[in-house]
Amino acid sequence: MEFLDNIFLYGTSIIRSIITWIGFDPAITNMIMAAVYTVAILVICTLVALFYVLYERKLAGFIQYRPGPNKLGPFGLFQTVADAVKLLTKEDIVPRNADKALHFLAPLFVFIPPILALGAIPFGNKLVAVDLNIGMLYILAVTSLSTIPFFLAGWSSNNKYTMLGAMRAVSQKISYEIPVIFSVLAITMIAGSLNMSEVVGMQGKLWFVFVQPLSFLIFFIAGIAETNRAPFDLPEGESELTAGYLTEYSGMKWALFFLAEYCSMFVFSAMATTLFLGGWLGPVLPGWMWFVLKVHVLMTVIIWIRWTFPRIRVDKLLEFNWKILIPASILNIFATGIGVYLFNNFF
């Protein structure tokens, strides 16, 4: 059990000892180890995207009384791979009047925030690439960068639909950032720490979701909006804006946006797991497995919501944020503050 729990840690220490045995000096060893972590995170990103694309299609099929992909390989397992091959071989179409450099860069930029964020998320006990003591702040900061690639994509395509999509993306992402931060703030007040691993460690007796249910709800809703998932998928809004900011993208560039969506969903679910659902904590199974399970449950709920609800309208979306979510989260912070004060002074 102990061995399974730490299997990845053993892996890294083996790699480290091999490198030292070859005879690099410590500074270079650290750099190589950083590269190893980066590769590991990239692998996680790819696997997550590959798996959840298929999983979503299967689940959607189940919801809609149809089998979903089932031709390629057992249970259609190779469907995503085949799709990726198809997309790689597709012609790359760039509009004549597009800003070609930005049009090319946007799909690359879109991967940066989730990859950066994954670096600070503890997948298990000590299983974290960089254990920052301001982890929460760091993750919030890098995920808020994700507005930029969407705007770049919409703006550089030089198309009215993409422009509308980009405007929607900016207004939506920036305004939903606030409830996310406020709900995380409530957790920080209780935990008294911004370190992700420490926050998990404090949830040994009671998960924070039971202490802060409202905060979890706000975080979850705003998170769905942050990741552009239905019913908040307005920037794409395929029935209104053809494909929003994605209208002028085809082939692999489009696929990168698509895969990045799943990565940022994963990052968001991982954050929710860490902050509210006790991270890697759980009996019997190894820690990282608990973590993956909890994330998987959240991902399933997000997908389930997507295939059930109609899309909300753009003004209602912002109204909902400014008139309901933000006041609720501010009230929650007040209540938490009073609670923490009483707890510290009287118990």
């Binding site: 959607a60 919801i63 809609q64 009384y65 149809r66 239905a230 019913p231 998928d233 809004g237 029935s239 295939w307 059930t308 609800f309 109609p310 899309r311």
Partner: peptide, 16 residues
């Protein structure tokens, strides 16, 4: 109608 409002699932039940 439901599909155009963004709920793609809504189209399958009547189509059956």
């Amino acid at each position: 109608y439901i599909m155009d409002l963004g709920a793609v699932t809504g189209v399958f039940y009547p189509f059956i």
